[in-house]
């Protein structure tokens, strides 16, 4: 098991976890009003999006595979 595999596994598992948490929090807060809560909702959506991006990058679906192993 090389370093790159560990990183990718971490990205995939962590990405799933964070995306689930972010979208669940967004779902729970959907009805909340107030300026700061609207901003929080936007931020949570973008956070979930970021987690999905990191997850997809970890799965090598998007982004470019490095020429060799990790750092």
């Amino acid at each position: 098991m090389n370093a790159q595999l560990i990183e990718r596994l971490g990205a995939v598992i962590g990405g799933i976890a964070v995306a689930v948490v972010a979208f669940y929090a967004l779902y729970k807060d959907w009805q909340v009003t107030g300026v700061e809560n609207q901003v929080f909702k936007l931020m949570l959506a973008l956070l979930g999006l970021g987690a999905v991006l990191a997850l997809l990058a970890g799965l090598n679906v998007i982004g470019f595979a490095p020429s060799k192993g990790a750092y």
Partner: peptide
Amino acid sequence: QRLDVAFAAWNSVVLFGSGATMHYALE
């Protein structure tokens, strides 16, 4: 050299995770 996406993805997840924990701290 191209940037290494695997490590960055993992590191990003760390930061995104901190966003989730901060959300629950406030909650």
